[in-house]
Structure formats: structure tokens, C-alpha cells
């Protein structure tokens, strides 16, 4: 009986610590931190997420966690500030992390990123995860505009990051294992990533590799200088504004106002918006959405082989989730467990 109880406790603990982040501190010249949370709303059979633009970035990296594999990349080089996630392989809460990155030489330097949680229902589940051995090139095209089989590109390809630019705006979450193979060890914790030396977390000094080989300091001052000069040379200033939600295209809008289940790390350049501001923003977006009639969802011209549905069936608009909803669920689970334990021990005592 005691074993059963211990197993139950271990199970509960595992479920709540699956997506725990252990972020590494930033290194220069990381992009500015986000000061606004990631927003999401339902879009057809998926979720559109959008986030704030930040200064000093080359692109955005999006990863998702919903199981023991932790955060796995779903899009490595997003140039826009929004992305539609679809093709889920299982229901349940999915924690999405968006990080901005800048390329320094052949490496990536990230900011801390921002998180949100999307509630995937069984209705949203449309794809089963592909087996490890069999890779479906067509399905990869759904996840990426530049389809490539794992054999074509290795993590050591110098231009891999640029080749994987995600212009499509739609990615299939179920296929994230493919991208994870191309970018081994790239997860939400990293502040630095070298495709050539994916195991190097600290690029500041020379070190020995797993086979005893000498790895030079990967963050080189000359490359930082070149990166800073390249970013500064951009003529278009980046406006660090509110994440935009394109309400013209969608029929239903719901924003996620809650704090994510895991610890949310936001930026330091300014104070995070308070709850009142978030509610105001959500109310404005909701009002805009209600003004719009359900419209036909037309595919983007640059979209790859994504099966576009000609018409989107309006779904009832979910209410913005209460800030403490997830915490409440955790407490309910704990209370149920405590009740169960009390029942067992009371019975034993009798």
C-alpha cells in the first residue's frame, strides 16, 4: 500500500516538473528581453501565438513542452512575430516558449524568452507523431518551408540556421522530434547554441569536448562586434510594442492572461504590464473580434503544403482563463491525494 502511495506522489511530482526550465544566464550581445507575455488564440484547428518584437534580434526560436522530453523546437528561425501551431499529437496543456536570438558567427545567442500555455483539446489532435526511423518528407514540409531529410543536413552545416527560416507561419507540433534531431540539445534553457558544438553551454572559454578534443572559446569578440555592427546597420528601427493579433483573419479570439504553469521569466528593460493593462488589452481584442463577422480563412501565399480549410467553423469563444486556474487544478490534485492518504491511514488505524 505504501508503495502505491509513493508511486502516486512520484507521479504527481513528475507531472508538475516535466516542463521546468533551468535557464542559463545571458551572454552578449543577446537581444533585449521581452516585457510582454506571449498571447494566443484559437485559429481553425490550431492556435495562433504572437509575441512582442524586440531590439537586436535576427529571429525567433519557438519550442513546445508537454511531456518528459522537455522543450523541443518547433520553429528555429521565425522572422515574424506570430506563428500558428497545429498538428498536435496529444491533448493537454502545452507550454510554448518563444525566445529571440541573434546570430554571432555560426552560433545563436538567445534572450531569456517568454512563455504561454495553450490548452490542447482532443479535438485539436490531428496527427500522430512519426516513428523515429521513418521520416515523411511531405509532413516535414508542413513544419518547414525548406524540407530536408535528416541525412541532407547535419547539425554541423554552417548555414543550417539560415536555411531553416520559417516563413510559413504554420508549424505542425507533432513533428518537433525531426527538428530536435537537427538541433540536438537545443532547448528552452540555452542562452547560447552552437550547431557545431551543441553540448557547449558556456562559450566564454576554451574547453575540452566529450572526446577530449580542444574546443576554442566560441564567443569571439570580433564576431560580437560584427554582429552589433550588423544589427545597428539595419535602417528599420524595431518597435518594441504590444504583440499584435491579426483579428481580420480569425473568427474567434481569446487571449491567455494567466501566468504559465512554469516560472515565467520576463525582461528587465521595463516593468511588465500589470493585470489591469492585460485585461484592458484583452477586452480591446475581444471587442474587435466580436465586431468582425466570421470570415473565410485564406492561406498565406508563402504557405507550403498545409491543408487549408476553405471555411472556418466558428467555435464558441473561450473565456480568458483565470490567472490561478492552473494553480487551482494543482491544489485540487493535492487535496484529492491528501484525502486518499487520509482514507488509507484512517482505515489502517481502525
Amino acid at each position: 500500500m505504501l508503495k502505491l502511495v509513493l508511486l502516486l506522489v512520484a507521479f504527481v511530482q513528475t507531472q508538475f516538473s516535466l516542463c521546468q526550465l533551468r535557464p542559463h544566464p545571458p551572454v552578449p550581445p543577446s537581444p533585449n528581453e521581452f516585457t510582454q507575455p506571449v498571447l494566443w488564440f484559437r485559429s481553425g484547428n490550431g492556435f495562433q501565438i504572437s509575441w512582442q518584437d524586440v531590439a537586436g534580434r535576427d529571429g525567433f526560436f519557438v519550442s513546445v513542452c508537454n511531456d518528459e522530453r522537455g522543450f523541443l523546437p518547433v520553429a528555429v528561425n521565425v522572422s515574424d512575430t506570430s506563428l500558428t501551431l497545429q498538428g498536435f499529437d496529444r491533448a493537454g496543456d502545452h507550454i510554448v516558449q518563444v525566445s529571440a536570438f541573434v546570430r554571432v558567427g555560426q552560433n545563436m545567442v538567445f534572450n531569456t524568452g517568454a512563455l504561454t500555455t495553450i490548452p490542447v483539446t482532443p479535438k485539436d489532435v490531428s496527427l500522430r507523431e512519426e516513428p523515429e526511423e521513418a521520416q515523411d518528407v511531405e509532413s516535414e514540409a508542413t513544419a518547414d518551408p525548406n524540407p530536408m531529410t535528416p541525412g541532407e543536413v547535419t547539425a554541423e552545416s554552417p548555414s543550417l540556421i539560415e536555411e531553416l527560416t520559417t516563413e510559413t507561419k504554420v508549424v505542425a507540433v507533432a513533428h518537433r522530434q525531426t527538428l530536435a534531431r537537427q538541433f540536438p540539445m537545443l532547448n528552452g534553457d540555452r542562452s547560447f547554441y552552437s550547431p557545431k558544438y551543441p553540448f557547449v553551454e558556456n562559450p566564454m572559454f576554451e574547453q575540452a569536448g566529450p572526446n577530449g578534443e580542444r574546443i576554442p572559446a566560441l564567443l569571439v569578440d570580433a564576431e560580437i562586434d560584427a554582429t552589433v555592427a550588423r544589427i545597428q546597420a539595419r535602417t528599420q528601427p524595431v518597435s518594441e510594442g504590444t504583440p499584435s493579433l491579426d483579428t481580420n483573419k480569425e473568427t474567434v479570439v481569446a487571449t491567455n492572461l494567466e501566468k504559465p504553469v512554469v516560472h515565467q521569466v520576463t525582461g528587465t528593460t521595463g516593468s511588465s504590464p500589470n493585470l489591469e493593462e492585460k485585461l484592458k488589452l484583452a477586452a480591446e481584442i475581444q471587442a474587435k473580434a466580436e465586431e468582425k463577422k466570421p470570415q473565410v480563412l485564406t492561406p498565406e501565399p508563402t504557405q507550403p503544403k498545409v491543408e487549408s480549410k476553405p471555411e472556418v467553423t466558428p467555435e464558441p469563444a473561450p473565456m480568458p482563463r483565470a490567472p490561478s486556474e492552473n494553480n487551482t487544478l494543482i491544489w485540487i490534485a493535492i487535496l484529492v491525494l491528501a484525502g486518499f492518504l487520509y482514507f488509507i491511514f484512517a482505515k489502517e488505524a481502525k
Binding site: 531569456t112 521569466v265 525582461g267 528587465t268 521595463g270 511588465s272
Partner: peptide, 8 residues
Amino acid sequence: SFESSGWK
């Protein structure tokens, strides 16, 4: 005095 969360 830290107004916001994140790295310091």
C-alpha cells in the same frame, strides 16, 4: 531595487 523579474 528591482522593478521587474528576470536576470540582473
